[in-house]
Design a protein around this nucleic acid. Structure first.
Lengths: 210, 210
DNA sequence: TCCCGGATTGCCCCTGGGGGCAATACATTC
DNA sequence: GAATGTATTGCCCCCAGGGGCAATCCGGGA
């Protein structure tokens, strides 16, 4: 039914402790997840190809290379929204607060209980799936908006602001009939069934940008 | 200019350690805040009158009575959105994660540095002021919406959905002229200048409810 | 009972949006 | 240079929305 359900949930596991990687990999695979393990953030970045998917379990500090916190910040800057679960043996509270303020999904401490980890990962995928479904609609919306010509975009904007055709024509320095033509193009390309519909589409577009 | 700036920022300080209450009270007063200190969550609740304002500094656990975490949850349930800063000497990471997931603004550890605390409180008030300004507009909106009669509300809803007058009339079992009358009442009461405007007001109203 | 305010409706008119059709203008391609 | 495509515009028609005016109806209050 859902897109996420069509693929095996993928867990990226980044930790410099090999025995822990082995143990968690086994645990997660037994729970039905596909697991890819990395010994460092650098390894993770090297192996990365294209758009990331799944969820990320990350130790906060690892010898050499960027720390887990830094990796998370970098991913956020790159608009990668996959959920990050921190896992650490030497975490303190300020670090934990920082990570969560930066958008971490959870912050666990070693040794982590089996149930705790699986619950966190399960919740992370639940959120991820919801986010994917929401953003799928948004992508369709931006795709439609991308098909607008610059003039149509301008008309779109003014229509949503409530300007009547006459005023739009004056603003664009063209005649009213032209505005009407653009306007119907906008309605068609945005697949809006009414003005009210169009305004609501615009609102969602703006929320996406913000 | 702003509402929050008209009153002295008020800090509620809840901690069972009297010497710490004294010290932080002095520190915060020196920084220009009005401070009310309580020895327990029960004291805080007893002293509470009407709508709360300001920000709340809260120890996580206190002997007897509800814990700080419980107080925070209760306030959230009561739709009190004032920012909560936790301050604790015995906090652990799971507790910290829980508090922040429940909406805490920050989570500090004792002994807390002067700068750290003042920064946290300052940020809390900044967020609070922004939230107040946003909700002031929303209140005006809901006040206007409250003046609609049930029929007008129904018409409002259908108009925003993009239904034409004829269809609305059929739905309500009345004639089209009546719908027009209600419609202009809706525009007037909601103080909307155009259909686009009305739709946007409706969107904001729905966001408020959600 | 009579009056008042609000809701409902019919009648009529005006304005604004939607769009078909055709001519024109400009750019791009073959 | 001819052909094709796109944008612009004028002309005209239709319909939907906005609203003034007056009649009607109804629930409350004096």
């Amino acid at each position: 039914m859902t897109a996420a359900a069509l693929t095996t949930p993928l867990v990226h596991l980044v930790d410099d402790d090999e025995s822990l990687r082995t143990a968690l990999t086994r645990l997660l695979r037994a729970a039905g997840y596909e697991v890819r393990a990395y010994a460092s953030t650098a390894d993770f970045l090297l192996a990365r190809q294209g758009v990331l998917r799944g969820c990320l379990i990350l130790d906060v500090r690892m010898p050499g290379g960027p720390s887990g916190l830094e990796l998370q910040k970098a991913l956020t800057r790159q608009r990668e929204t996959l959920p990050v679960i921190f896992l650490t043996g030497h975490g303190d509270i300020p670090m934990c607060v920082q990570a969560i303020k930066d958008g971490a999904f959870d912050f666990l401490t070693k040794p982590v209980g089996r149930e705790i980890l699986l619950t966190a990962v399960g919740n992370a995928f639940a959120r991820e799936e919801a986010a994917l479904q929401a953003s799928a609609q948004q992508r369709g919306l931006t795709a439609r908006a991308a098909r607008l010509t610059p003039t149509e975009r301008e008309v779109f904007h003014r229509v949503v602001e409530g300007q009547p055709n006459k005023q739009i024509a004056a603003g664009l320095g063209c005649c009213e009939r032209t505005v009407k033509a653009h306007r119907s193009q906008v309605m068609a390309k945005m697949e809006a069934t009414s003005l009210a519909d169009l305004v609501q589409l615009s609102t969602r577009l703006n929320q996406l940008t913000a």
